[in-house]
Structures are given as structure tokens and as C-alpha cells.
């Protein structure tokens, strides 16, 4: 459905382009400078999302930066993301749906 690269690009675009690419230390990957609001409307849950990963990418880009810099999906393995996202679900009070969507995205894009 999505290639890893395209998922990651989508999220980086969601987080407003190269700027966040710089935050994640992946300069060069973010090609678009589209402002965040054009990419993702103000929403936390994947209400009408066609794909959970797509919603996960948006939630990741907007919610994971609330407390600290974002780490790229490639920073951790699938198994490690599984543990970290459980940790973050508790810490950041994410719902089950948000947790699953972000986890799916990270595991698909790493």
C-alpha cells in the first residue's frame, strides 16, 4: 500500500517539511514545505482515514513533538517501537486507537 519511504515522507510533510526533517536529523528527506495545517486538519483520531498508517503518520508528526524532539522511525526496530509506544501511550495519555495508529506507522516506516 505505502512504501516505507513514502510513509516517512508523508509524515515529514505532515510535520511541516524540512524543518522537522532537521529535528529528526534526516535533512534532505523532507521535500515539501507545506504548512502543517494544510496536510492535517485539527484532529487527533483517524476519523475518516483510509489507512491507519496514514493517520499514524499525522498523529506522530503532531503529537510526538509535544514534549520532546521527534526521533526518526529508523531510530528503533519494530520490537523496540512496540515497547516505546506502550511507554508513550501511558506517559502521553494516548488512546488505544492513537497508540495503534502511530505504532503501525513507525513499524512500517522504519
Amino acid at each position: 500500500m505505502f512504501t516505507r519511504k513514502s510513509l516517512f515522507m508523508m509524515a515529514v510533510a505532515g510535520a511541516a517539511g524540512c524543518g522537522t526533517a532537521a529535528l529528526t536529523g534526516c535533512s534532505g528527506d523532507g521535500q515539501t514545505t507545506a504548512p502543517l495545517t494544510q496536510v492535517a486538519p485539527a484532529a487527533f483520531a483517524p476519523r475518516d482515514s483510509a489507512a491507519l498508517e496514514n493517520a499514524g503518520a499525522r498523529i506522530w508528526a503532531r503529537n510526538c513533538i509535544r514534549c520532546h524532539n521527534i526521533r526518526t522511525p529508523a531510530s528503533f526496530s519494530d520490537r523496540q517501537w512496540g515497547i516505546i509506544m506502550h511507554h508513550m501511550r501511558v506517559r502521553a495519555n494516548l488512546t488505544g486507537e492513537q497508540h495503534e495508529a502511530v505504532l503501525r506507522f513507525l513499524q512500517a516506516a522504519n
Binding site: 486538519p41 485539527a42 484532529a43 487527533f44 483520531a45 501511558v90 502521553a92 495519555n93 494516548l94 488512546t95
Partner: peptide, 15 residues
């Protein structure tokens, strides 16, 4: 006890 609850397009969390 803690968690998050979406309300419309907004979000509440509690602990």
C-alpha cells in the same frame, strides 16, 4: 488511573 479521551476534534486527558 490515567488515560485520554477524544471529544470531537479535541482531546482530554486525565490522571
Amino acid at each position: 488511573a490515567r488515560g485520554g479521551v477524544p471529544v470531537g476534534s479535541t482531546m482530554f486527558n486525565y490522571a
